[in-house]
Design a protein around this nucleic acid. Structure first.
Lengths: 241, 241
DNA sequence: CGTTCACTGTTTACACCGTTAACTGTTCTG
DNA sequence: CAGAACAGTTAACGGTGTAAACAGTGAACG
């Protein structure tokens, strides 16, 4: 139960974060005075809600992460729930499109050294969790092969059995922990490709036409047992991209 | 021929960039006043050499890129010139090690939205050029297969024939332009993996033990016709990492 | 019901930032 | 040798994040 004071406080908190987000992409820049002005306040008042400019950035990062993930989920859910492959593609494309459209926000959440990603990951890692869950459902349907624990480095096995990142592996038997390795590698491929595209360390036309992104998807499709589905996936991506 | 004035000017220029680099990683932060203090000057004096703080950052970025590449080349050249595979591995490991050790500098050069990468790429893209050259020499020796122009999207073919990024393809016949696509994808894999490691969007222990990096290298070894060399490469990486 | 006190805002101020303008001395050049 | 080009200074402006002191307002309690 919240007192009325706590309620208004929480709401101001939300307004602060929302205003900060808006200013992040505006040309004026994300300054405390600008944020305060949006709420008809003065800058020092913000210190009643936030410890520092940096901590506010952290809050904004978490907010962006979770609302962006909402977007991805919306795209995912436009595909049939019985078609995890299509859902995965839709989410991946949504991730890429969002990143390329909102570079400043992507930068804040995914490649900002000032943001403590580990702390962020511990509490929420909305997008990461979502992709892991999707990948698991793809495996449930297609049963693609994954490395047995015996073939992996012992260090790797031990850390896969005790994941430090919140992975929703409840009800997954120990024998399947090699799967987590596949998931990590898929995430690495997606994240790496999108980051490369966002920062443009590549011929811009390759980004424009989504050529490496498509190539990466095709590679991953092979890994995830979706080779037979490839023509369908290609058509889907053409539609989504 | 340089007049003595031009000479001292060029030297001050170098000192400014060097001081800026040093301050970039210091806790004090990279401010014009701090840079000036390092040269026993006042901040406004820097405007005789540099248009703005942002332009100075660009210069620092270029400097970092080129000196880091020197480092990579030094590691490359510790391997036999007749062994391009080993040279490539050495350079790739050097790139990764450098990135993880100097995250602030990596961030500035490779994932800083304020730095105009395209401009940077046009003039110098020291590291990119180096990797392209290495990859070409690997192909010369191992003759790994690459996609024929006919199997690629027409947009892709046309942009490969007219690269916007300075690739040293002089003397390479037109039929080999499918190779460039392999190169781009290899670069994407390396850049993506290293960026992921640097920003830690992954279980930190996976980074610590270099597990995804190794996995990425093994994948790329397959693509680059180095499957038979893998045991040797593995041993080499163990030594280098 | 009145008092107290935590809460939420204000104003003022500080140190620092990038940057501009005006001024001064030195050094090269015609 | 005169004058211009250069390389530095000081002073100042508007901006930043942040700290301290103060003021009103609403909730809680005797």
């Amino acid at each position: 139960m919240l007192t009325s004071r706590e309620q208004t406080r929480a709401e101001t908190m939300r307004k602060i974060v929302r205003a900060s987000r808006k200013l992040l992409t505006s040309k004026g820049g994300f300054t405390l005075r600008a944020v305060a002005a949006q709420l008809d306040m003065t800058a020092p008042a913000l210190y009643r809600y936030v410890e520092s400019h940096e901590q506010l950035m952290q809050l904004v990062a978490v907010d962006i992460d979770s609302t962006a993930t909402e977007e991805f989920k919306k795209e995912r859910d436009k595909q049939s729930a019985e078609d995890p492959a299509a859902q995965l593609m839709a989410a991946a494309v949504a991730f890429r499109t969002w990143a390329l459209t909102n570079k400043a926000e992507f930068h804040l959440v995914f490649t900002n050294p000032e943001v403590d990603h580990n702390a962020l990951l511990q509490t929420q890692a909305a997008s990461g969790l979502m992709f892991h869950e999707l990948l698991f459902r793809v495996w449930e349907k297609y049963q693609f092969p994954f490395p047995a624990a015996e073939t992996l480095e012992p260090e790797l096995v031990s850390l896969l059995c005790d994941p430090q990142i919140p992975i929703d592996m409840k009800g997954v038997p120990e024998e399947l922990y090699g799967l987590v390795w596949v998931f990590m590698r898929s995430w690495a491929a997606l994240y790496g490709t999108v980051t490369l595209e966002v920062y443009g360390h590549l011929d811009p036309r390759v980004v424009e036409h989504g050529l490496i992104f498509r190539a990466m998807i095709e590679d991953q499709a092979g890994v995830l047992g979706l080779t037979d589905e490839l023509p369908r996936m290609r058509a889907l991506i053409d539609k989504l991209i």
